[in-house]
Design a protein around this nucleic acid. Structure first.
Lengths: 89, 89
DNA sequence: ACTTGCCGGTATAGTAATACCGGCCTATCC
DNA sequence: GGATAGGCCGGTATTACTATACCGGCAAGT
């Protein structure tokens, strides 16, 4: 066996993560944030819209730094155990 | 341009992350931890040895949970700003 | 109309995640 | 002490996915 396709749960987790990032960006220019995180705007847009459901660890860490998001909230959102996100959506 | 190769900095970050994970495992069986995190033993071994320098976000989160490692420490180690790791190596 | 900003589709190099192999140690057990 | 087993390692192969780029389109604001 090699590299199974992503499970629906993982895709759903990616969607939640994207929604959190988009909400945290809150009006700032997408390209500006992407540059601050050291990734391309295209990539950030795909992460936010959930089309890149499972990005690299470093990618998310850098984004969290650029957006001033605590790492724990990112992790909690990915796991689906984030309560503060629900209130926001 | 498409997908540039990983920079030496990213590879070094992967090595640090692997060293932290291996240290945190501390004697537990590799296969047992991998199973607890929901990944294959082969994958965990490659992450620990630094041969998978930039794993997925979810992969690291699950490993941190299986090893009881705070997410912040994982992030700090990846960034190279972890002080507690230095004391351990 | 023109700009700004986001969107989905498409294409592509490089990587993640998985699996199998043989080898190398270090114990442990006839 | 030679076989046997447990655990790690590097090399290799394969598939799905990331990260990036370019395109045309669409809506809102100027």
């Amino acid at each position: 066996m090699v590299r199974q396709p992503l499970t629906p749960e993982q895709i759903e987790a990616g969607r939640r993560l994207g929604a959190l990032l988009r909400h945290a960006r809150a009006g700032r220019d997408l390209a500006e944030v992407a540059h601050a995180a050291g990734i391309s705007p295209e990539t950030l847009r795909k992460i936010e819209t959930g089309r890149l459901p499972s990005p690299g660890f470093g990618t998310i860490i850098c984004l969290g730094e650029a957006l001033n998001l605590p790492v724990q909230e990112l992790a909690a959102t990915w796991r689906g155990s984030d309560l503060s996100l629900e209130a926001v959506l």
